[in-house]
Amino acid sequence: MRVITLNLKYDGSIPVEAETITPDSFSDKSKEEIEELSLYLGNKVVKLREIFDVSVEGSNTGIDDVKIIIKGNAYRIKRIGEGMTGGEILVEGNVDMRCGSMMRGGKITIKGNADSWTGQEMVGGEIIIEGDAGNYIGSGYRGALNGMSGGKITIKGNAGLYLGEKMNGGEIVVEKDADMLAGLEMSGGKITIKGNAIMPGGEMTGGDIIVMGTVIDRLPTFKYLGKEIIDNANFEKYVGDLAMRRAKGSLYIKAP
């Protein structure tokens, strides 16, 4: 196991585009090479060492053997772990947008809060957010036909708007509440919301949404099918969103 620790020393408010921070890109690079990687700070190119102090321990045989630890409040560092295929990233504070977007494998753990578009269009792997999450978690890029299509995102806090928008595979679990329109336009996959949800499943055509708390403003375009038991709990099953053609989405709401 090779542990690469990045100590954040940047505290400005201009965002940093850090798509090069992935186990894939670090696995075959020495400490010096990692420090020389280029990042965009606003519209300027900077070296990674200008943003982070790098320390490296141990050695690795492949990508899966790499662990990246990001220390400090990275709330202005975007796109960490973009497209990663293996290994592990541990973020000890918050992260900015698009962390783990287009991720294919491996694991990202965020101890703080994650901003919007975390896990955007992810295909595989796992993301754990221990704090709250922003909007559009596991969604598609603006205009994209599909969002997340595989892997798993766990949010231990609350989730923002449009959770799993356009999602067509994989799984999202929210331990607390989800804001409006979770599963907007989703066509596959599974979203479990352990707290409350507002208007879940708008324009969904497939996949499952399970709400264990209360649903506020359930959309009228869902049709009640009957009671169903999941994990020894009673749920009311709805199909929808019937505003869409050939809609086969399932919405399970915990029975009172």
């Binding site: 598609g140 890029y141 603006r142 205009g143 994209a144 036909l145």
Partner: peptide, 8 residues
């Protein structure tokens, strides 16, 4: 305009 996803 309708395809921002193509622009990336």
């Amino acid at each position: 305009l309708i395809r921002p996803e193509d622009g990336r």
